[in-house]
Simulated scan of single mutants.
Amino acid sequence: MTSITHHIPEDLLIAYAAGNLAPAFALAVATHVSMCDECRARLGAHEELGGALIEEEAEAEVSDDLKARVWDALDAPLVPEKTYARSGIFPAPVMEALGGLPPKWKSLGLGVRQMILSYGPTGSARLLYIPGGMGVPDHGHNGLELTLVLQGAFRDETGRYGVGDLEVATGDLEHEPVAEDGPACICLAATDASLRFRSFIPRLLQPIFRI
């Protein structure tokens, strides 16, 4: 496994363990955890702590109607969920988001491509394909952006990000990520708000590409 130096911040890991992350961010965290022994161990610790806290909670009375609905749900036949193993550079959580199929890339110009995995009021998740030596236009953020490297590497004002590294970008970061020479940099990016591009052309195309 490639050495991972940029990990999930503690607050995001706790929110994920509690089930309080928006789906796009939960996908990014789940994918990083599947690649990172350190964060997987940290997540396990938070889950154990959460379980212990629940056990210490006082019992609460519930209505007979609620009990009946719970038992009915438990008696209902289970529909097996499809599970997807890792395929190439794509870990299992990404393969699940892809429905087990290869990405269907859409061109953004200059060799850069994307595939939107989810898009809605709570945020979006997408795969980005950036050829070696190419970059994403200079931009800031109106919210939170998580970018997880699946192949290759990129550099920006905050440092270098290789396979498994997670960049956490907030509203105070303006940067211009550039893929390193060599294999294309493929990333999983999750956002909860639109980006702020400085140049006119990216701003003009932004609604079309839903970035």
Rank of each mutant, 00 (worst) to 15 (best):
M1S: 12
T2P: 10
S3H: 15
S3I: 15
I4Q: 05
H6E: 10
H7M: 01
I8L: 03
I8N: 03
P9N: 08
P9V: 02
E10F: 10
D11P: 08
D11I: 02
D11M: 05
L12Q: 03
A15C: 02
A17T: 00
A18Q: 15
N20I: 11
A22M: 04
P23I: 05
P23W: 04
A26E: 05
V33Y: 03
V33P: 02
M35L: 15
C36D: 01
C36N: 06
D37V: 08
E38P: 07
C39I: 02
R42D: 03
L43N: 04
G44I: 08
G44L: 13
A45K: 09
E47G: 04
E48G: 07
L49C: 01
L49D: 07
G50Y: 00
G51P: 04
A52N: 05
L53F: 11
E55A: 12
E56G: 05
E56F: 13
A60K: 11
A60F: 13
V62I: 15
S63E: 07
D64L: 14
D65P: 09
L66S: 07
K67T: 15
R69G: 09
W71K: 10
A76F: 12
P77I: 07
V79D: 12
E81I: 13
K82H: 14
Y84W: 11
Y84R: 02
Y84T: 06
A85N: 15
A85Q: 13
A85F: 10
R86M: 11
R86I: 09
G88S: 11
I89E: 05
F90T: 02
P91C: 13
M95Q: 07
E96N: 12
A97S: 02
L98G: 00
G99C: 09
G99Y: 04
G100C: 10
L101W: 01
P102S: 15
K104S: 04
W105M: 15
S107T: 06
L108H: 12
G109S: 06
R113T: 02
R113L: 05
Q114V: 12
Q114D: 14
M115F: 12
I116A: 12
L117V: 10
L117W: 09
Y119D: 13
P121T: 14
G123S: 10
R126T: 13
L127V: 11
L128K: 06
Y129N: 08
I130K: 04
G132C: 12
G132D: 04
P137F: 14
H139Q: 02
N142R: 14
G143I: 05
G143H: 07
E145F: 06
T147W: 00
Q151W: 14
G152W: 04
G152P: 09
A153Y: 02
R155I: 11
G159H: 00
Y161H: 11
D165S: 08
L166H: 07
V168R: 13
V168Y: 09
G171C: 03
D172G: 09
L173F: 12
H175K: 03
A179M: 13
E180D: 05
E180W: 00
D181G: 14
I186V: 15
A189W: 06
A190I: 02
A190K: 00
T191E: 02
A193Y: 01
R198C: 01
F200A: 15
F200S: 15
P202Y: 06
L205F: 14
I208S: 06
F209A: 14
